[in-house]
Nucleic acid binder design. Structure first.
Length: 876
RNA sequence: GGGAGCAUAGCUCAGCUGGUUCAGAGCAUCUGCCUUACAAGCAGAGGGUCACAGGUUCGAAUCCUGUUGCUCCCA
């Protein structure tokens, strides 16, 4: 503890993190203890820490630290994923700045640049996690492209291919023209966008007039291969069998009939563009229409468009509109709102595009993965997500796993000169296989061409809980045997399908087992106005900056206070301030105790206070454990907060605090120091730095080098004296009431008061004389048999208290107060009596509930008779 | 358009299978205090027709139906 006396978390946080690292407290190796394992949801290697990470990793650290302090062998595996699209985009940009174009360099050269980039910038986020206090086993830091991790990916590809679950096919995919790759359905974010609906006239080829088509994408007319109308649409009977001319290019296309067309939308005439729309594609298949793809991979028009070649699709849209207008083919335009897909990675508008891709069948794998969740083997917390999960799993579509990129695991498929392909781990194995298939002795190994594409990053991530323990290539190794299945996974609901569902599938496929027992789904961090935090809005605080200002402990407390499980959280810096203030409170409570002198000759006069706090502490311990068992971390924190601030600081320390510059007795001091140590333990998972700092203070005596709070064992549950707890609650009421009287009558806390009690409850107030004397500054406390005249009075439980005051009592005000209370009690009694005199209540309600009502009745009646008597006395 | 969820104090949220004074917590607010651990604090206090309308029940914040408003997922 620093000598400055002020709580300054920055002074010691780095010190203790280094100390923990040095002493390898985060390190885990299999042993005879029960394991407790968390694998980190690997953040994107290009990423920097944002508030979502803060939340997520604070939760993981709290769980892992608590497990570590509960006798478990705690292992938190950190790492990053290679984020193929995002990283490749960054590297391409970096090269562009250096004047290098990706087209001009080889795959090998590109990958070298990419690895250099990763080495240089890829670890930032992990360093930031250290600031937060994350107690990961850094020796285990994994990366989804580490050799053994990549090998697991390739093995998985081959295994699933051999099972017939991976196939290649032409499909309409979500094309990201900026990333120049396909993305999966889950990576497309739909947003409502204001667009224009263009009404375009197509001339009928025989010169008999025109028809009008409404479209949001006029630039795709050059790819039209038909116009479709509903066969039942009377307006268009005359068009059946006709041909029309595509405006601007005058290509002839047929009018086809299909009930698919919605007669009420637009004009009822649909342009069919099989290459650029999924529904049109299916329609085209059905009617055997040709496919004309007019777009390049980067979203510009190609020569098949005939016009505007090389223009970007959005620029082309505007130009086509102008050209149509000039040609007299544009009937009108209308404002129109519709849902457009955007790439999660690049935010480019997704272009539906036909291309040859690799797919992974999901149906077979989804079934067991769904069952694990439905039968509770894998628990989703909160369980409201089970419905969402089930819905997705029951309607799962095949997963497009190929990406047209270099950064990632290259698909282990090898093309032969004749167009066939084989799937094999190495070129050599592929060659062997190829020879077998082709029986071609002329085939040479160099003739094999490996698939250019890589697999989706999630195709690595779904193996994460297994592959970090090398459980794919070495399924029986001691690590995977020990740590798998892991315990808790902490992540956001937005990747329930991307990742969580697929990990469960992979777990079942490779090990016939779940990957984790519990999935804690955090909410999304929003600003206090409820908006999602985003770079564009600039409404996200920089977590590292927050840590510098409030301390890591303060930020951890702040973010947990605002984060009930599964709910989005409205983050406000005020929570961090509350966290820091809490740290300050603990710090100062510590300074108080530390400052006490001890006099061994003094007797202990605080037995009641000590016994009370011990009971209260044990009670809170159960509450906290219960909250943890239900993953109610903010409640666990709040229970701890109240125990420390209210019970320990505000009540206990005030009860036992020696008079200024007077020494404490040995017993009180020793017990209090012990309480403090236990408090540090339960606080540690939430506030690791502060607790470690105080743990090593000389107040606790000499500590061995490895005697650290981080590895201390949680206090064990002790006895709870309920009667004592209840009595102290009454005593606290007494103290509050006296303080109230002081407030009302403007009596200084320094002025001692005299107190008498007429006991009706059986509580032995003698035991609490000291406590009440100290907390309420009462110099004389006597038990009386009769009411004291002319004194301020109040009720605590059913006991009557009297405080004679130098000033006269305002009898009228006192009467009014009592009458108010009487009125309330009479009303209350009435409702209780109404219940009790209701036969159906007495018959139907559970006996203990009826008994309760009777207790309430007796209690109210007792209070009423006291008040009546007091009123009579005042009147008399 | 289909599905799910939510609505409780100024704010963020608890409130389990209806029944202890059930209407709560934290923060914020108000009042009084620089009482030598802490003003990043202490002591008090106020604040809600539990979205709205019906229903079931001896009894509803809690269960049912409808209405309104918001959020998310899917098409």
């Amino acid at each position: 503890m620093s000598t400055s006396g002020k709580y300054q978390p920055q002074d010691f946080e780095d010190k203790w993190y280094s100390y923990w690292l040095q002493h390898k407290f985060f390190k885990s190796v299999p042993d005879e203890r029960e394991p407790y394992t968390i694998v980190i949801p690997p953040p994107n290697v290009t990423g920097v820490l944002h508030m979502g990470h803060m939340l997520n990793n604070t939760i993981q650290d709290v769980l892992i630290r608590r497990a570590r302090m509960s006798g478990k062998n705690a292992c938190w595996v950190p790492g990053t994923d290679h984020a193929s699209i995002a990283t490749e985009a960054k590297v391409v940009n970096m090269l562009k700045e250096q004047g290098i174009s990706k087209k001009d360099i080889s795959r090998e050269e590109f990958l070298k640049y990419a690895y250099d980039w990763k080495e240089k910038y890829g670890g930032i986020i992990l360093e930031q996690l250290k600031k937060l206090g994350a107690s990961c086993d850094w020796d285990r830091t994994a990366f989804t492209m580490d050799p053994h991790m990549s090998e697991a990916v390739i093995d998985t590809f081959i295994r699933l291919y051999k099972k017939g679950w991976i196939y290649r096919g032409i499909r309409m995919v979500n094309w990201d023209p900026q990333g120049k790759t396909a993305v999966s359905d889950e990576e497309v974010i739909r947003k409502e966008v204001n667009q224009e609906l263009y009404y375009i006239n197509y001339k009928i080829a025989d010169g008999s007039g025109h028809l009008t088509v409404a479209t949001t994408r006029p630039e795709t007319i050059m790819a039209d291969t038909a116009i479709c109308v509903n066969p039942n649409d009377e307006r268009y009977f005359h068009l059946h069998g006709k041909k029309v001319l595509v405006p601007l290019i005058n290509r002839e296309i047929p009018v086809i009939l299909d009930e698919y067309v919605d007669m009420t939308f637009g004009t009822g005439c649909l342009k069919v563009t099989p290459a650029h729309d999924l529904n049109d594609y299916e329609l085209g298949q059905k009617h055997k229409l040709p496919v004309i793809d007019i777009l390049n991979d980067d979203g510009t028009l190609n020569e098949k468009a005939e016009i505007l070649i090389g223009e970007d699709r959005f620029a082309a849209r505007k130009k086509v509109a102008v050209m149509l207008e000039e040609a007299g083919s544009l009937e009108k335009t209308e404002d129109y709102k519709s849902q457009i897909g955007f790439s999660e990675r690049t935010n480019a508008a997704i272009e539906p595009k036909l291309s040859m891709q690799w797919f992974c069948k999901m149906g077979e794998m989804a079934k067991p993965a769904l069952d694990y969740v439905l039968n509770g083997d894998v628990k989703l917390i909160p369980d409201k997500f089970i419905n969402t999960y089930r819905h997705w799993m029951e309607n799962v579509k095949d997963w497009n796993i190929s990406r047209q990129l270099w950064w990632g695991q290259q698909i282990p498929a090898w093309y032969l000169p004749n167009g066939e392909y084989v799937v094999a781990k190495t070129r050599e194995e592929a060659f062997e296989e190829a020879q077998k298939i082709t029986q071609d002795s002329a085939l040479t190994i160099d003739q094999l061409l490996q698939e250019e594409d890589v697999v989706d990053t999630w195709f690595s991530s779904w193996l994460w809980p297994i592959s970090v323990f090398d459980g794919i290539a070495n399924p029986d190794n001691p690590e995977i045997q020990y740590y798998y299945p892991t315990n808790d996974l902490v992540t956001g609901p937005d990747i329930l399908f991307f990742w969580v569902a697929r990990m469960i599938m992979a777990g079942h496929e490779w090990r016939g087992e779940i990957p984790f027992k519990n999935v804690y789904l955090t909410g999304i961090v929003r600003d206090k106005l409820g908006r999602k935090m985003s770079k564009q809005l600039g409404n996200s605080p920089d977590p590292v900056d927050l840590i510098e200002r409030y301390g890591a402990d303060g930020v951890r407390v702040g973010i947990l206070l605002s984060a009930p499980a599964g709910n989005d959280l409205m983050f406000d810096e005020a929570y961090c301030e509350q966290g820091r203030n809490f740290g300050n409170k603990i710090w100062n409570a510590f300074r108080l105790v530390k400052g006490w002198e001890v006099d061994d000759s003094l007797p202990c006069e605080n037995k009641v206070a000590i016994d009370w706090f011990e009971s209260r502490f044990n009670q809170a311990l159960t509450e906290i454990a219960d909250n943890f068992a239900q993953y109610r971390l903010s409640d666990a924190l709040m229970a701890t907060y109240k125990l420390v601030w209210d019970d320990f600081c505000a009540w206990y320390l005030e009860m036992i605090k020696p008079v200024y510059q007077h020494p404490a007795d040995r017993e009180t001091f020793t017990r209090t120091v012990k309480f403090f140590e236990d408090i540090l333990k339960i606080l540690h998972p939430f506030m690791p730095f502060l607790t470690e700092e105080l743990w090593h203070d000389e107040l606790f005596g000499e500590r061995a080098e490895n005697d650290c709070c981080i590895v201390a064992q949680m206090p064990s549950f002790g006895e709870v004296n309920t009667q004592l707890l209840n009595e102290v609650e009454v005593v606290k009421q007494v103290v509050t009431q006296i303080r109230n009287i002081r407030n009302q009558k403007q009596i200084s806390p320094k002025e001692a008061l005299v107190l008498s009690v007429k006991v009706n409850s059986g509580i032995s107030y003698n035991d609490y004389k000291n406590v009440i004397g100290k907390l309420a500054n009462v110099s004389e406390f006597t038990v009386v048999n009769e009411a004291v005249d002319g004194a301020a009075s109040f009720l605590a439980h059913t006991d009557e208290f009297f405080v004679p005051l130098s000033q006269n009592i305002d009898a009228a005000a006192e009467i009014e107060r009592l009458q108010k209370e009487q009125e309330y009690l009479l009303g209350f009694l009435k409702s209780v009596n109404a219940k009790l005199s209701n036969e159906r209540f007495v018959q139907n309600a559970k006996p203990e509930i009826v008994q309760n009502e009777q207790n309430k009745k007796a209690d109210a009646e007792a209070k009423l008779s006291i008040i009546e008597k007091q009123l009579k006395d005042l009147a008399g």
